[in-house]
Amino acid sequence: MKKELFVGVFLALLLTASFFNIHYIGKLTDDVRQRVDHAVSCAEAENWGEAEKKAEEAIAIWTGRDTFTHLVLRHSEIEAATESLYALAQQIYSRDKGAAKGAGQAASARLASIADIERVRLGSIF
């Protein structure tokens, strides 16, 4: 009976950890997306200094959680998201308003899709 009890508790812990993981990834991607969106709106207003700062913050937050993301996300997804953030920064550094907007939208969509895949929805399950 002890074994069954231990296994039941372990299963409950696994479930709890998985829901925590969904919450954490959702929060992380939201944080990064907020900065991406802010960077894009600053770029549109030609406030390049602030746009650079926000894009760099977004990269720092995303790459700062490297260990965690590599544990729980497919490495190809992480790399694609990282590349999209650097692409945004590149367009901002080159002061290309239109390209920065496109790169920002791509990065935001990439991050949203990572969070979406992890969420418990019919679409994610099947």
């Binding site: 372990f10 299963l11 497919r74 490495h75």
Partner: peptide
């Protein structure tokens, strides 16, 4: 190796729990 090890470990452990229960 681009797939996290947890993607293999967690389902195996979940199956183990189900089987024991």
């Amino acid at each position: 190796i681009g797939t996290p090890l947890l993607y293999g470990l967690i389902p195996v452990l979940t199956l183990l729990c189900c089987q024991v229960l």
